[in-house]
């Protein structure tokens, strides 16, 4: 595995993503849901909303890195707020 050049931060990053996938898979199996139509006007399930959250968070973090001069933690805070909004309204 040395060739993959693992570090603790990237390891934790992937573990969080993997855990989210496992949790959402279990949720989908245990508590099946009907897709709903939110502010985007498209049908989404919990999994879709997770994808929109993760992809959007990546862009929020990149935008923060490129445009703002403050600590990167703030981008994470914005991402959490964004995630809550996506799960509530999308």
């Amino acid at each position: 595995m040395a060739w993959m050049a693992w570090t603790w931060p990237t390891g934790i990053f992937f573990m969080v993503i993997a855990s989210l996938l496992v949790v959402f898979t279990v949720l989908a199996a245990r508590y099946p849901e009907t897709p709903r139509r939110g502010v985007l006007g498209i049908e989404t399930t919990r999994g879709d909303r997770l994808f929109i959250t993760l992809l959007g968070s990546a862009f929020i973090n990149l935008a923060w890195l490129g445009l703002a001069d403050a600590a990167q933690w703030w981008a994470l805070v914005i991402s959490v707020v964004y995630a809550a909004a996506v799960f509530r309204w999308v």
């Binding site: 040395a2 060739w3 993959m4 050049a5 693992w6 570090t7 931060p9 990237t10 992937f14």
Partner: peptide, 16 residues
């Protein structure tokens, strides 16, 4: 892809 993510936060001059 995971390897690329790992590379993106590090610097290398070769020799692993």
């Amino acid at each position: 892809l995971m390897t690329v993510v790992n590379y993106s936060v590090q610097d290398t001059f070769g020799n692993n």
